[in-house]
């Protein structure tokens, strides 16, 4: 068993997802199969290979230190589930 229901539950907490016990078991089973499939990669010798994290070759992409204001506060808050027009409001953080 590559991934236990306990591990699925722990990972779900890290990802802020709430899974029912049935879902946890279901995911554990499915993920187990998927992770088992991924073990194929250990067949390859990658000891001298640099990881490739992006396909593009460019480096040092930067922009100048110039200020722009292209959006009003109203636009930024427009989609907020709860706001007083100045802040994003959430349930009290502890």
């Amino acid at each position: 068993m590559k991934i236990s229901p306990e591990e699925v539950a722990k990972v779900a907490r890290l990802a802020r997802l709430d899974l029912t016990p049935e879902k946890i078991d279901q995911y554990a089973g499915q993920l187990d199969g998927i992770l088992g499939y991924m073990d194929k990669l250990s067949e390859l010798d990658t000891s001298s290979v640099e990881p490739m994290y992006t396909p593009v070759d460019q480096i040092s992409v930067m922009r100048d230190d110039v200020v722009r204001k292209d959006f009003t506060r109203e636009e930024i808050l427009r989609n907020a589930p709860e706001t007083d027009g100045a802040f994003f409001i959430v349930p009290r953080i502890v």
Binding site: R16, L17, R92
Partner: peptide, 21 residues
């Protein structure tokens, strides 16, 4: 927090995160 679905019945922040997602 800033857009998208929010479960407004949640009483705590972490409950809000978990339920909404």
């Amino acid at each position: 927090v800033r857009y998208g679905l929010r479960d407004k019945s949640a009483e705590s922040l972490i409950e809000m995160y978990v339920k909404s997602r």
